[in-house]
Amino acid sequence: MSEALHEPFEDISKQRSAEQAGIWIFLASEVIFFGGLFLGYAVYRYRYPDGFAQALAETNLTLGVVNTILLLCSSATMALSVWAGHAEMRRLVVLGLSATLLLGCGFLGVKGFEYYEDIHHHLVPGHPEFPVETIGAEMFFSLYWAMTALHGVHMAIGLGLIGWTILAVRGERLAWRETAHLHVVGLYWNLVDMVWIFLFPLLYLVGRM
């Protein structure tokens, strides 16, 4: 059994508040970080609407939909494990986290396959056989790679956290009942999902021909 209270806190409620405030400040910095990329997308989309529309038509809508389904379901299973944590249901916590881990791994697997397909179709900015000649199309794919890869890195970090949490909760090596650990992991995962909720329409839907 691990100790819940850590220095410099004198009571657990203050420690929980600090943990929650800390993750929210971190999430705020993440919003600004991804916000810059979304802003870049918006400006270039405004400048090169035709190039962006033609480039977007090259992305694989089916795989985008599959990944969105996986991620939306993972949001729900993550929330389920946080609620189960409040109710001190250890088995449901582990079940929810395990489902989230599986769905998240599924997402990264599908994304990896999509990347393979994209490279196979020369959808890489600067490639001599890049299939769309309209100006702005390569900019779309620069943003596509940057945004999805950064999102993927965030997902991989989240999956690592979830995997570690499953082991720690199962082995009672974490004071998950007293601390805000589950809530913190849940908030991080839900923000990563939220980023995809906006990436999906911008990279697969809006202006599709």
Binding site: S17, Q20, A21, W24, I25, L27, A28, S29, V31, I32, G35, G36, L39, A42, S75, A76, M78, A79, V82, G186, L187, N190, L191, D193, M194, I197
Partner: peptide, 30 residues
């Protein structure tokens, strides 16, 4: 996601201010 899963409305004041500031700065940026 924000209301049902992240439960922003139940967060303490510091957390809510952090979330609000992030959205406000994003608005200013755009």
């Amino acid at each position: 996601v924000a209301l049902a899963f992240m439960e922003v409305q139940k967060a303490d004041v510091v957390s809510q201010i952090s979330a609000g500031v992030a959205v406000a700065f994003l608005g200013i940026l755009f």
